[in-house]
């Protein structure tokens, strides 16, 4: 880091400031408009509105309602894209094998104890984010990313060997991920199956009852809003994101002994 670099960076940030000042003073763009567009207004109005039971999704968190109810198919395809990235890593490291040495080394005892105290707090927070996705800001992806911090902490502090000792294998994680993806599909087509049995009209990714079909997912658990399928989607998404990120971390932290065969396979192909 030379002094010249710092100066150039400082002048760059001043340039950004001057450009934004010009835009603000000339009035090209109104920053933070108080007027909401009519589409956004309708989302805000209908996302938790028991008097219009054909349009609502009983979700207090509007972002969750939009992501999993009003555009559920989009989000489902995003989840499958994450799966595709994991498969890409697998093809890159084709032929690796996970060897268990059963000698976890890791850092010193003080660090391990501190990590042990923190991990339950992180688990509780992640589960709270994911299962309260319909009530407070957050949801499945947020909870899964927070839960994946645990595996990154364990790899950094306890070493990869401890993850093997706890029963984590990358193939098992991928299988769990696939099962959760199937679970998402099952929740999505459940109203379709019920409609097929009862011989009425119904839709894929249907949450609450519509004008021409009376089938609806459970909207309340006792007195807490469950928001129908949004809760189940959030739980499955939590597991999918957690297993996906953990698989990526485990595959990238493989030792040289485990990767030896993968390199041989690559040389054969080249």
């Amino acid at each position: 880091m030379i002094k010249r670099d710092v100066l150039v960076a400082f002048s760059l940030s001043l340039l950004v400031l001057s450009i934004s000042l010009i835009i603000w003073l000339e009035g090209y763009i109104r920053i933070a408009t108080p007027i909401i567009s009519s589409l956004g207004e309708s989302y805000l109005y209908y996302s938790y509105n028991p008097w219009y039971s054909n349009y609502t999704s009983f979700s207090l968190n509007v972002v969750s309602a939009i992501i999993w109810d009003y555009r559920g198919f989009d989000t489902f395809l995003e989840t499958t894209v994450l799966m595709a990235s994991i498969i890409a890593i697998y093809t890159l490291l084709r032929g690796f094998e996970e060897k268990v040495f059963l000698q976890p080394k890791g850092l010193s005892t003080i660090t391990k104890t501190a990590t042990k105290i923190v991990i339950p707090l992180i688990i509780a927070y992640a589960l709270a984010i994911a299962t309260h996705g319909q009530l407070t800001p957050g949801g499945g992806f947020q909870g899964g990313a927070t839960l994946a911090v645990i595996s990154s902490l364990i790899i950094a502090v306890y070493s990869l060997e401890f993850l093997y000792y706890m029963g984590y294998r990358s193939k098992r994680l991928v299988v769990i991920r696939g099962l959760c993806l199937i679970g998402l599909i099952i929740v999505a087509i459940t109203p379709l199956l019920i409609g097929f049995i009862l011989n009425t009209k119904s839709y894929i990714f249907q949450n609450m009852s519509k004008e021409d079909s009376f089938i609806s997912m459970p909207s309340f658990l006792f007195d807490a809003p469950l928001a129908g399928s949004i809760f189940f989607y959030n739980v499955f998404e939590l597991l999918i994101v957690f297993t996906g990120l953990t698989t990526a971390l485990m595959l990238l932290s493989l030792r040289d002994v485990e990767l030896k065969k993968a390199f041989e396979v690559r040389e054969v192909y080249e």
């Binding site: 850092l107 010193s108 003080i110 660090t111 501190a114 990590t115 707090l121």
Partner: peptide, 16 residues
């Protein structure tokens, strides 16, 4: 509580 646990252990592992 969390900072009191994490900050000393972090600097301990750095020093070690």
């Amino acid at each position: 509580f969390i900072i009191l646990i994490l900050a000393p252990s972090g600097s301990h592992s750095l020093a070690r």
